[in-house]
Design a protein around this nucleic acid. Structure first.
Length: 431
RNA sequence: GACCCUAUCGUCCAGCGGUUAGGACACUGCCCUUUCACGGCGGUAACACGGGUUCGAAUCCCGUUAGGGUCGCCA
């Protein structure tokens, strides 16, 4: 039997991180077991059903690195994959017409063997606690519980991994499977993601939508990694994992049953870790769109790559890259008043910069090692600490007190531009 | 209210009958250092409570409390 899992979002206009994690777990389960991962859009509620809302789902999943084998955009053997196009299929399962239709519960105990929660027995005998559910409205449209079950049957899904908010609905779904003469799939109800107040993460909470991470310069692999860690652990205190590692280690049996609070701080940290360890090509791939969007006139590709190289070890948000490299491509960069005050306006700064200009002008080998040696030697000659040269030089060249390595900046700027910036700064510096 | 799930540092995750209760984020002290980061070495900080079972319980059972979820002609 081929494993078939699915992600069945409703197009609400944004992809919730909880939904994204559900998709991720389903995807992982399918990929681990050589199965298929299906995307089905539950758009029966037409008033919030727009093309843009569908696109947000596609974009979010693709961004996270999740691919699907069947879906509305690509078709498949069990389509259509939009519920709004499946009315005839649903109608084929009921025969009465007129008025709303309810499903009569057999009122027998229902036992659920959940992959995550274990065995749960539901007592369905009390109609007050478990009222017969409506499956079709008077206008002929069908209700979630019914279409969800029918679609899962029709699409031959074998495993349903979903949020724990569906746990209490599951006995109803099982009754439906039984009534339709079908064997229920294997269920796995994963814990929910909560906000800092311990409530369900809502639209208003920062980082509740995948779009947030796309826009704020997160690496997809970092977000996927973080999402996995909510409710799951590979053991051995491992945390930073690549997708390949997650795929190799992921095990649905090891998912815990506690709701987890979403911690943007930790996701941020993980993002920095991933950026630090990713290959340079990947970094360029992820950073370049932000550079383009910011409209930085970086000239040649080689110049951009040189800039990105010296900045990669420092970047925590890919969206910060333009700010990190901007000063390298223009003489119009801003001077941070505080940095100017602290380094350039310090007594003797102008003289020290002049000394540095003199020393570096003579330098033929404009390399990191040679530059460092020259600067240190100048400091010795002047009888000052290296910092007395380093700090004004940094501000002279970049306008601020924080940035990439000093000599790296010199090298990227080249001799001429570096010395010109020194000269300009010397004129604004204190004698 | 009824039903279901859950309960280890502020947060995430380990722990599955015998541990000085471990790791990570955050906070913080020191070191490294040309800035900022990174990194290294430390620190603060937890088994919700009450009963059992057991020689022994964070681990098993029951109860209480707390939190979450579900009880729609939303999905």
């Amino acid at each position: 039997m081929t494993v078939r899992t699915r992600f069945a979002p409703s197009p609400t206009g944004y992809l919730h991180v909880g939904g994204a994690r559900t998709a991720l777990f389903n995807w992982l389960y399918a990929r681990r077991h050589g199965g298929k991962f299906i995307l089905r859009i539950e758009d029966t509620d037409e008033k919030r059903n727009t093309a843009e809302a569908h696109q947000v789902i596609y974009d979010g999943l693709k961004w996270l690195g999740l691919d699907w084998d069947e879906g509305p955009d690509m078709g498949g053997d069990y389509g259509p994959y939009r519920q709004s196009e499946r009315s005839q299929i649903y109608a084929g399962h009921v025969y009465e017409d007129g008025g709303s239709i309810r499903f009569r519960s057999p009122r027998k105990p229902v036992v659920l063997e959940d992959m995550v929660c274990g065995r749960i027995e539901f007592d369905m005998s009390n109609p007050a606690t478990h009222p017969d559910m409506t499956i079709r409205r008077p206008d002929g449209s069908f209700i979630f519980h019914f279409v969800n079950v029918v679609d899962d049957i029709e699409m031959k899904l074998t495993h349903v991994i979903r949020g724990e908010d569906h746990l209490s609905n599951t006995p109803k779904h099982i009754e439906l499977y039984n009534a339709l003469g079908e064997k229920p799939p294997v269920f796995g109800h994963i814990p929910l993601i909560l906000n800092h107040e311990g409530k369900k993460l809502s639209k208003r909470d920062g980082g509740s939508s995948i779009t947030y991470f796309m826009e704020h310069g997160y690496a997809p692999e970092a977000v996927a990694n973080y999402l996995c860690l909510l409710g799951w652990s590979p053991g051995e205190n491992r945390e930073k994992l690549t997708m390949e590692e997650i795929l190799a280690l992921f095990d649905i049996d090891k998912i815990n049953r506690r709701n987890a609070i979403f911690d943007l701080d930790k996701c941020f940290w993980l993002n920095g870790q991933h950026i630090l360890s990713m290959g340079f090509d990947r970094f360029v791939e992820l950073a370049k769109p932000f550079v383009e969007k910011a409209g930085i006139a970086y000239g040649s590709e080689a110049a951009l790559l040189a800039a990105l190289t010296i900045v990669k070890p420092k970047v925590k948000h890919l969206s910060d890259v333009p700010d990190w490299i901007g000063f390298l491509f223009t003489e119009e960069f801003a001077f941070d008043p505080e940095a100017v005050e602290k380094s350039l306006k310090k007594a003797g700064a102008a003289g020290r910069l002049q000394a540095l200009i003199a020393a570096l002008t003579k330098l033929e080998d404009w390399s990191h090692a040679s530059l460092e040696a020259a600067l240190r030697e100048t400091a010795t000659t002047l009888g000052v600490k290296t910092g007395e040269l380093v700090h004004p030089a940094r501000v002279a060249v970049s306008g601020r007190s924080v940035g990439p390595g000093l000599y790296e900046m010199f090298v990227v700027l080249g001799k001429e531009r570096t010395l010109a910036r020194f000269a300009r700064a010397a004129s604004m510096a204190a004698a």
